[in-house]
Amino acid sequence: MTVPSPQADQAGRPPLLDIRDLRTHFDTPDGTVRSVDGVSYRLEARETLGIVGESGCGKSVTALSVLRLLPTPPARFAGGEIRFQGTDLLGLSEREMRRIRGNRISMIFQEPMTSLNPVLTVGRQIAEAVTLHQKIGRRQAWQRAVEMLRLVQIADPERRAGEYPHQMSGGMRQRVMIALALACHPDLLIADEPTTALDVTIQAQILELLRDLQAKLGMGIVMITHDLGVVAECCDRVVVMYAGRKVEEASVADLFERPLHPYTRALMASMPSLQGRGGRLAEIPGMVPAPQELGTGCAFAPRCPLATERCRRETPDFTGAATGHGVACFEAAPARHQPVVLHRHAGARP
């Protein structure tokens, strides 16, 4: 797998998606919640970028920020920019933004059960998505819907297009969602945990379908997930997020070979492996701190087995981005490649 270096603009074209120092904050009665606090990443066309992290670490908020789907207020863009093919999305009007949503950037959601309107046939929903952005007739739009259903490998698409979501299984509905999202052939697809609600065999099918479609349509994919298995399966590069910040970024191969951040290593240790024998999986003690409770220092320090005084005092900068494998940690010297000692369940907890 090749790692596109951050300066890979051979043709002088701007990257597909370039998020720089994005800060999305929420103003709540209890104070400002910094859900996303200085996240940067970029994505080239035909590339798949995985965003990994526990619940509440800001993965989805970042994605929703890209589409500007967060209600403002309470959400507020406190800084940074989101460049899509060179245009700063944060500077666009709502009207211009609507022309991008679904047309050039699309999103698929976690719950295929609730992402489709129960009272409209799936064909109609796809056809309508097409007519939102393209001036084509009803009949053509319907044909396009059938064609999209065929593209996502739904058997007998002519008949299926006339069916309602409740007549379909979860996996099929997720296929319909994908058809819906790709109906206008967007350049960028944001997949927010697209397989979490599906059972394992269907997960693999959906991921393979996404890979196929990416090869056919050539879009960039941002794959938001908390499942490192999904990342290993379909991503080129990975961004690991923790408490609204990027803690590590690397190519998939690099990340799995030498995870630098203690959090990444802990995540990997908590994955079941085929080699390991039984027993309880390692867990990361504690919880992601609520964003309003963040104090100074590294956000992971309270749960980190390697944490030092310095970690609790200062926030580590993100370093090593130029090498293609960056990390935000004082203790993550690449040479020190030792297994992180995790608190096995029975052992002492902090």
């Binding site: 609507r98 949503r101 679904g102 959601f109 609730t114 992402s115 489709l116």
Partner: peptide, 14 residues
């Protein structure tokens, strides 16, 4: 709050 309403917005529906 239904996801299909959110999805419709994500598709650029007015």
């Amino acid at each position: 709050e239904q996801q299909y309403v959110e999805a419709a917005r994500a598709l650029g529906t007015r």
